[in-house]
Design a protein around this nucleic acid. Structure first.
Lengths: 206, 206
DNA sequence: TAAGAATCGATAAAAAATTATCGATAAATG
DNA sequence: CATTTATCGATAATTTTTTATCGATTCTTA
């Protein structure tokens, strides 16, 4: 048996969140139906591509002359992406970026609880955005007790590999890193790099 | 005539920054040569894919039995990606995230000067990370005077479209948005979404 | 100095993704 | 009620991307 996610191509999967963002915007404006052509135009894709993507995740077909029902489509995509399964995450590195993310409330819409941050420096320990900042020593504890699988790494580049190692030891198996450094991790641990400068540079160059 | 960037496939282009990150890591460890097989192994790609990518951007061929010279490869990729052409950028939205990014120094390695932030709220005006935070009214001014083309949007979702419009009016033609909202922009303005929650969710689900 | 190992580059094959085309369907309209 | 229009879904064609294969090159080492 294949799981739901392997049923769609990687390319499609990477567009689904964008559809979701777009559809929520339309829903917010009170739009009830959208056609694949309209989505395509607004999002800069081809209509055929949109139809094909939606066919894979939509629980019911689009209506000729109307298109797809926005509300249902949002539900279907969210269900498909698993935003209903809840996951706990922690932040390692409570500098400016770490604290900003700790205060960000947008994660809850995606099935993610960011429960705490951790930092080496005693000066950083405390709280931000109503959530606790603990000393690094407590990382293993919290990870085990709250069954945390994911870590957001917001430490300076020089501290990244060491912090990464500590997170892995603590039991984390997926890392979203903001440090612009390649991390070496054991087999089975996933790393995703979120490089702000690269994103920006791509935008400039393209 | 085609420009340099259109000479490589989109897929390759999206891997180049990752090679760069990896190569810089190796360079930092004192490694002088790397083989495509080694890169592939560490980065989770196929060796053939790596060779093909590098062949497109490397100014000189790899040496049999050694591989590629790390230092040269870094230079070639940076040159290829245009990290030598400088671009000015501004931040719109000086909340926690905006200020954190304003203080981030990693942009300079990518040919990007983040010169200032802007905010509606008078309380936010001032400075962070040694860079000024101006009231929104001054956006047009600064954009024109410093020939700013790119804007990082870090305002709350409810303010995003309006701030985006202001940026466009001011003369911005590329936006990196952290607000989880689809933005409507005129033809010719590029938008890229940096959705932290989506990145994290992809990591959890995959 | 000859044999062997590691690596490359190029060409070819396979797989994946996008785009095009077309008949079918359902609402709107005269 | 027939015609027109907007849309869909499916199949087919095209393009892009990845992977496989193989001879050539260059260093190592016996």
């Amino acid at each position: 048996m294949v799981n739901a996610e392997s049923a769609v191509s990687r390319a499609t999967a990477s567009r689904l969140p964008a559809y979701l963002r777009y559809l929520k915007g339309e829903a917010g404006k009170g739009v009830e139906y959208v056609s694949s052509a309209a989505i395509a135009k607004d999002m800069g894709l081809s209509a055929v591509c949109v139809r094909k993507d939606l066919a894979l995740v939509s629980s019911r077909p689009g209506k000729p002359r109307f298109g797809f029902e926005v509300r249902l489509l949002i539900e279907d995509i969210e269900k498909f992406l698993g935003y209903h399964r809840w996951t706990n995450a922690v932040i390692v590195g409570a500098g400016g970026l770490g604290r900003a993310i700790l205060s960000y409330e947008g994660f809850e819409n995606y099935g993610i609880h960011v429960i705490a941050a951790f930092d080496n420096s005693p000066a950083k320990v405390g709280a931000a955005g109503g959530k606790p900042i603990y000393p690094m020593e407590r990382l293993g504890d919290v990870v085990r007790r709250s069954d945390v699988k994911v870590c957001i790494l917001t430490v300076p580049r020089s501290a990244a590999q060491e912090a990464c190692d500590q997170a892995v030891v603590a039991g984390i198996n997926a890392i979203l890193s903001f440090a612009p450094v390649h991390l070496h991790v054991p087999e089975g641990v996933k790393v995703k790099y979120e490089d702000l400068a690269v994103s920006l540079a791509e935008l400039c160059g393209a």
